[in-house]
Design a binder for these strands. Structure first.
Length: 572
RNA sequence: GCCCCCGUAGCUCAGUGGACAGAGCAGGAGCCUUCUAAGCUCUUGGUCGGAGGUUCGAAUCCUUCCGGGGGCGCCA
């Protein structure tokens, strides 16, 4: 018996197990066949073979295929096709395996029995969207830090992209059985915060008719004027003659910005477990203490009045300043402390989602982790490229400084959370996105999000219709599922079988867009089934079996939509 | 100058070692008196930026060149 609650890719590496599950059952069988063949003296003993068992692109090549014979041919001293024949001859029995075939240059193709897919159907139909979920907490303890925008303005679309990517990766990791903690780090200390407060202060004073010079590198966006007006409305002239005016405005501004950010993330369905303040690192002396750790380990030196971190010891192109000659920290110092704090909290792995404009920062952060005594591979940085915003083909300027600035929240309001999330999740993080507001709003196939949701709405509609016709779904044990032999039904079953491995793969490769791609393929198979096969028919046996197929399909589409953070409408 | 990402069909993008390179949109031809046509079928369309190399096998790996974007601060 196999354990359906485990992710298939997890099972692949579980060599102690003897259960039937694919593709690992095939991998074990091929290894056993190679062993048997070598014991029989037909080939030398082979080790460290890097063969794969994967789903062939083309259906005619079966359900699974392996390149084992191609990979091992040279070491075995045989032609690939001859070795493939030998492997097939020595193959032990595998449950649910219907046929093997040697094809092309020496691939071995495996076709499974219909019974396998009916097992898949039963599991998916009765197990719900979580039927392919990994055992909770069975894998790594992972912290994922993302968005982490400075609390001095609204989020822009680039933050939105990082937010959606981080969120979907977190959801996929969680589904795969990892323990995930989602964290937002905000720089509520430092120069940018001062400048933000000074900008608000100047506008506040000007509003009261005082002579106040706007700071040279102050913030100019429209939002800063709006927020200053709110500040005036909130506090009136209370702050005009108080000594700690700047500090009070800084606190007010922090609240205002963080409130806006939190609301925006909530609209975007991007939750966080931990909100981490930079200020707390200063207050606990964690910044000084981590510099001392680096110093003790021999990576700190003084030069020209500044304190330096010798990151070149770890392959960085130049050393970096930790404490400036004026005594102020650079941004690196609290970041070192922050990452030390992360590892002290005991995470197996720490993932940061950064925009492409920060890629040059990777070597120094990795250096910091290594210098602190941790394996730098435990820190992973996922870089996502930029987002360009267009309106009907015309670029929308995204400069913080110019007045022309469209916030993430405005995009969510105008386009809607589902379509916005889909677009930000559907592209590889390595691809620059051209986000067209008009195209995003259109309810057509310019917008594949509806294609996925429509599949779900159709499933619900079919179930509603059946109920209206007075059809009760029988218990699945009493239903003859073998009537599901239409090619369109078989195609849906094959797609259902992919769920676990697709989400696992997306999580493992930090590639959230794979889920969107799989979702489209699943929806295609379902829409085809809908067109080809009538569900509510005069034949009760067929109706029952198809209602269960829909139940299983619903499990899968809901799992996909949920992992992408999309809603699952019951009608459209 | 150095570093990173991208270059695949008219457009937007999947595909990072396998079997004739895929999807959507756009173009052409069809499918609703029956469960949602935001759907389905068929079809046109590609020297995978160029050139070398590694491999039984390269869009995928390496070198180099050409385009586009981003980054190289005692700013964050």
């Amino acid at each position: 018996m196999y354990r359906s609650h485990e992710c298939p890719m997890l099972r692949r590496y579980d060599h102690a197990s003897s259960m039937t599950a694919f593709p690992d059952a095939i991998e074990h069988a091929v290894l056993a066949a190679l062993g048997a063949a070598s014991e029989a003296g037909a080939i030398p003993t082979l080790s460290d073979l890097a063969f794969v068992v994967e789903r062939p692109r083309d259906r005619v090549h079966g359900d699974w295929a392996t390149n084992a014979a191609l990979v091992a041919a040279k070491a075995a001293g045989m032609a690939p096709r001859d070795l493939a024949t030998l492997i097939v001859e020595h193959l032990p029995e595998v449950d649910y395996l219907a046929a093997t075939e040697i094809a092309g240059p020496g691939f071995i193709n495996f076709t499974l029995t219909p019974e396998w897919f009916l097992e898949v159907l039963r599991i998916a139909a009765t197990g719900g969207p979580d039927h392919a979920r990994g055992e909770p907490g069975s894998r790594e303890k992972i912290q994922i830090e993302f968005v982490s925008s400075n609390p001095n303005g609204p989020l822009h679309i680039g933050h939105g992209r990082g937010g959606v990517i981080g969120d979907v990766i977190a959801r996929a990791l969680d589904y795969s059985g990892h323990s995930v903690s989602r964290e937002y780090y905000y720089n509520d200390a430092g120069v940018q915060m001062d400048l933000f407060a000074a900008s608000l202060e100047a506008l506040y004073l000007q509003a009261h008719g005082r002579d106040a010079e706007f700071p040279e590198d102050g913030y100019h966006g429209d939002y800063i004027k709006d927020w200053a007006a709110e500040l005036v409305a909130d506090l009136g002239d209370e702050l005009l003659d108080v000594k700690d005016r700047r500090d009070q405005i800084r606190r007010w501004g922090l609240q205002r910005a963080m409130g806006d950010i939190e609301e925006t993330l909530e609209i975007a369905r991007i939750p966080f477990d931990v909100w981490f303040s930079e200020t707390t690192l200063h207050e606990s002396n964690a910044v000084d203490r981590s510099i001392e750790v680096l110093r003790k380990r021999g990576y700190v030196f003084e030069e020209e009045g500044a304190v330096w971190f010798r990151t070149t010891d770890f392959g960085d192109e130049k050393d970096r300043v930790l404490v400036k000659s004026d005594g102020e920290y650079t941004y690196i110092a609290p970041d070192v402390a922050y990452h030390r704090d992360k590892f002290e909290r005991g995470f197996d792995r720490v993932i940061n989602i950064w925009g492409a404009d920060h890629h040059g920062y990777i070597p120094r952060m990795k250096a910091a982790v290594e210098a602190l005594g941790y394996d730098p591979d435990r820190l992973e940085i996922v870089i996502n490229q930029m987002v360009n915003v267009n309106r009907a083909g015309e670029p929308v300027r995204m400069s913080m400084r110019s007045g022309e600035f469209i916030s993430f929240r405005e995009v969510l309001d105008e386009v809607g959370t589902d379509a916005t999330r889909y677009i930000l999740a559907a592209f590889s993080p390595d691809t620059t996105i051209n986000f067209d507001l008009e195209a995003a709003k259109s309810q057509s196939m310019d917008n594949p999000v509806y294609y996925l949701q429509y599949a779900h709405a159709r499933m619900c509609s079919l179930e509603r219709f059946a109920r209206e016709q007075g059809i009760e779904r029988s218990s699945i044990e009493e239903v003859d599922l073998t009537v599901l032999d239409h090619p369109a039904e078989a195609a849906v079953l094959r797609q259902i079988d992919r769920l676990g491995e697709e989400i696992f793969e997306a999580a493992a490769r930090r590639a959230p867009h794979r889920i969107a791609t799989y979702g489209t393929e699943f929806a295609t198979a379902f829409h085809r089934f809908y067109t080809d096969c009538r569900v509510v028919t005069d034949d009760p046996a067929v109706t029952q079996a198809r209602l269960w197929l829909i139940e299983a399909s619903k499990s899968v589409i809901v799992a996909i939509l949920t992992t992408l953070g999309l809603s699952a409408p019951e009608s459209m």
